[in-house]
Design a protein around this nucleic acid. Sequence first.
DNA 1: CTGTTAGCGCTTTCAC
DNA 2: GTGAAAGCGCTAACAG
Lengths: 338, 338
Amino acid sequence: MVTIYDVAKNAKVSAMTVSRVINKSPLIKEETRIKVEKAIQELDYIPNRSARSLISKDTKLLSLIITDITNPFFTQIARGAEDQAEKMGYQVVFSNSDENMAKESAYIRSSVSRSIDGVLFAPSGDSSADNIEILKKHGIPFVLIDREINGIHSDIVIGNNKESVEQLMNHLFEYGHQRIALLTGPEDVSNTREREAAYIEAMKEADYFIDERWIQRSSLRDIQTDQIINYYMELPQASRPTAILATNNFLGVNTMQSLRKRNIHIPKEMSLVCFDDPSPIPEYDSLLTVISQPAYELGSLGMQLLLDRIEGVETSAPRKIVLSAELIIRHSVFNLKL
Amino acid sequence: MVTIYDVAKNAKVSAMTVSRVINKSPLIKEETRIKVEKAIQELDYIPNRSARSLISKDTKLLSLIITDITNPFFTQIARGAEDQAEKMGYQVVFSNSDENMAKESAYIRSSVSRSIDGVLFAPSGDSSADNIEILKKHGIPFVLIDREINGIHSDIVIGNNKESVEQLMNHLFEYGHQRIALLTGPEDVSNTREREAAYIEAMKEADYFIDERWIQRSSLRDIQTDQIINYYMELPQASRPTAILATNNFLGVNTMQSLRKRNIHIPKEMSLVCFDDPSPIPEYDSLLTVISQPAYELGSLGMQLLLDRIEGVETSAPRKIVLSAELIIRHSVFNLKL
DNA sequence: CTGTTAGCGCTTTCAC
DNA sequence: GTGAAAGCGCTAACAG
């Protein structure tokens, strides 16, 4: 391995001078700089970050913890985050928590162990608070994305759940739907809670009756919609929902498949809408009407906030950025009024 | 920051003993081990990887360099890679090269700088050979995925291009297509070359004439299919293709959009097939008939090979794994025989 | 402007 | 089984 001393020897200067050149110190004679740079070139010297980090305490390494990179929503977040990090000279380690607290903890501990400079974190649920505590204890800056954590007050970038649900519900209302089912996730995920609350509020505001049986919960990890669909379809005609609102894209796609398995036509026999696109290419041919959150921006803005913290630009109170989503009307909602 | 010395003091042992406990050395008295572990717990000590890496030269950090995480093909690769790495106690840094050699070089240099343990690498093209040289010079193990590099003999996991093209072509032939266009990428990408060669071979074998004008190239980065579609459509009827084979998913989707823009119906007026799904969810409603490569396996097997190298399990000759793809017939090919 | 010294947190080596 | 000393590659702090 070529070290700073090899370069120093080659350039006939001290290691310190080489260090100064690497770090673009301004108080280096042009002549020396050139000499050192030549030696660096010649020996193909690349500085050792571990050694540097041992002293400086920074690693130019950021951690992105999401539940599943495979979900296009998170893929876009990852891309936004990486682009932003790259611009600022950072690299990002990514991890899939799979909504699993144990995996999440392991990743957080790894991050601490690596003296990672900061964490961009889509928590699995409210119990992620414990993991946040670890970060706080070790003074590692973090920014939450997509999901809040009960009782944690921090920098965060999230979608506007209330507004998004309203858009979806209004669309359904306009098309004459009144019996709308909500297929949602676990209670300890903030999204789920907020979307459910918004759903209830929208129904109340429209003065439509809510049958408790319409609100069904699924794990976000092992999605089993078959039973739920069966359950819906076996409700007496008069209380059977005419539309389903799924609170995320995987839930939406699974519901779509479950309906197809039972040969229930979308949208003729059942309308379906969900949060976020199931493909990273919005123009990709599709059936599903969705409310699409600006995932790329969630990632890049989240990273922006994180880097602000790290580089000390912004040390003031936690900042919360709430992003609006876009309703993309396709063909999964039947117009009952026609 | 809690260091190994703090733990040592707390447990009334030497730092060395703590180090042995952390590293699960067998020659530690059970009693001491417990004492130390208690101290670790109490102080919430997490070892500093930078310090450790400075000595041991390993970082438990792997680099995944792909062109774009946003492409579902690479998303799946990333997931496969991360899963495998995680199992073995490694973390992965991901980078999007955007088919850009400069970005790629920067990432490679960063990897070296970080003493990354290995690189899983989908190269931008043949000129990535220079970047491979850097890795070789610094003794960093690497495995190529998805694309070969002219003149580089190394561990690699790729799809079977010839077989895949054959499957696609046979499907088109069966449906009566003879004038088939090939929309492909740059010449210095191995995939592109091999797929083109396989296309030509398939056409020859079927004894169909190839009009040179049917073979069109696009950048993989800024895909502009409008002009190409215009060009195809303006060919005299008799030499106008009835089907297009796009050599990747983004090319395929862009072609789909270009056709739609011109109100050309798929498949009635033009058939279209491509490599790889445009959504990570294969069941997602779609039009496109594709040949879907096992991307997850590409990532996990690639990572497997890499870890084998790193951990010295396999130091023998380079291994090449060639994976078969699956033809997924949907609705983008018109049956001319009906 | 440049060099010397010391030390970051850990582990290797060797001694006990 | 355990500890003391030395040093990994780099840079902060000081001296010159």
